[in-house]
Structure formats: C-alpha cells, structure tokens
C-alpha cells in the first residue's frame, strides 16, 4: 500500500509567475515521457517480474516517480498562482486556461491528454527493462529541452535534480538487466520468458 508523506522529495520554491513556462512543464506531468507514465509503467510492470531484485527496483523507482509527479504539479501550480487576467491571456497558456483555469491536469504540452498508450507493459523481463532504459533517456531529453526553454533559476534547480534522477534510474535498470541475465539461460536468454514459462 501507499502512505502519503506531507512533504516533497526536493524543495520547490518558485517566486515568479510564468504561465508560458508552466504550459511546457505540464508535459512532464501528463505527457508521453512524463512522471505519471513513468510511475504507472514501473508499478505495473513489476507484477510479471520473476526475480526479487526486479520486483524491488521497479517498486522503489515507481514510488520515487510518484514523488516526482508531485514535484512537477507543485512547479506548475506555483508558476500559475497569483495569475492576472492579462497573464491568463498569455499565448500558449490561454488554450490550457480555457479548459482547466489554473487546475493541474495530466496532459502533454501539445494538449493531448495523458494516454497510457505512451507507456508499455509487455510481461517479459528483457523487453520491459529495455523499455525502461529508453523511457529514462526520453525523460532525460525532455528535461534537457525544458532547460533550453526556461530562464527561471528557481525552476531550473528543480529540473536539474529531476533530470539527474533519470540518469541514475537508467544506470539501475541497466544493472537490473545484467542481474536478470545471470539468472536466465546462459547460452540463449531468449530461450524462455521466465515471467511466463515456469
């Protein structure tokens, strides 16, 4: 089960209102490589995992990603509170505002609502962990791109932290593949799927 902790993983303290920036950062809330998809991917993949290291790692990273989802929500909220009528008209944010006001909704920056089609659960050890390696890289690039688009130092400190977490998670998923491989058929890791063939 999950128990809520009334604090963020990392401090989010944004002074300036910037609806334009909020309208791109929302992509890490509900976009194709965002934190919602990340947590759902890992927390869903773990059921088919046959080895304790993989069950543990997917549970632990999936849980951390939920904390990142909350941090992104906090960034979007703080960038859009104290919004003036004039600021609500900001090009790029106005299309979000008309539907959501300043509520935080899981959507891609493009306006496409969160879709589980952007993540995968294949029920196969190597396929799922390889998907996870790619997912961490895509999220890392999204954070790179946010750093290209943002001049706000309060935001960039948080983005740097979140981006670095993607690098560490990539490392751990890579190690998880190596650990899994050691337990699989040494001559041909594709001989069976240990998540299904008992």
């Amino acid at each position: 089960m999950f128990i809520y902790e009334k604090k963020l993983q990392y401090p989010v303290r944004i002074k300036n209102c910037d609806p334009k920036l909020a309208s791109v950062i929302i992509s890490q809330y509900g976009g194709p490589d965002g934190e919602l998809g990340a947590s759902l991917r890992y927390l869903s993949q773990r059921y088919a995992m046959p080895y304790p290291e993989l069950k543990g790692l997917l549970t632990d990273i999936g849980t951390e990603e939920l904390g990142h989802l909350e941090m992104i929500g906090a960034i979007v909220h703080q960038l859009t509170r104290k919004l003036t009528d004039e600021q609500a008209r900001t090009a790029g944010f106005d299309t979000y505002f008309v539907d959501r006001t300043t509520g935080v909704y899981p959507t891609a920056a493009s306006g496409f609502p969160y879709s589980a089609a952007s993540m995968a659960v294949k029920g196969d050890v190597i396929a799922d962990l390889t998907e996870d390696l790619a997912a961490e890289q895509k999220a890392r690039v999204t954070y790179d791109n946010i750093l290209r688009l943002s001049d706000d130092p309060d935001v960039n400190d948080v983005i740097r932290f979140l981006r670095e977490r993607e690098v560490v998670h990539f490392q751990r998923f890579g190690e998880a593949i190596a650990l899994a491989k050691d337990k699989m058929d040494q001559k041909n890791v594709y001989y069976v799927n240990p998540a299904f063939d008992k």
Binding site: Y143, D157, F161, V168
Partner: peptide, 21 residues
C-alpha cells in the same frame, strides 16, 4: 546534485552547476 554518487553526476551543459539548497 540529485545523486549520492559523484561518478553518476552527469549534468546538461545549460545547468551544469549544482543547486544551492
């Protein structure tokens, strides 16, 4: 730095310096 491990600290050039929390 977002990591406990100096060996894994691989920042992007636009925000290479660690935050000052």
């Amino acid at each position: 730095n977002g990591t406990l491990f100096p060996g894994l600290n691989l920042p992007f050039h636009l925000k290479a310096k660690a935050a000052n929390v």
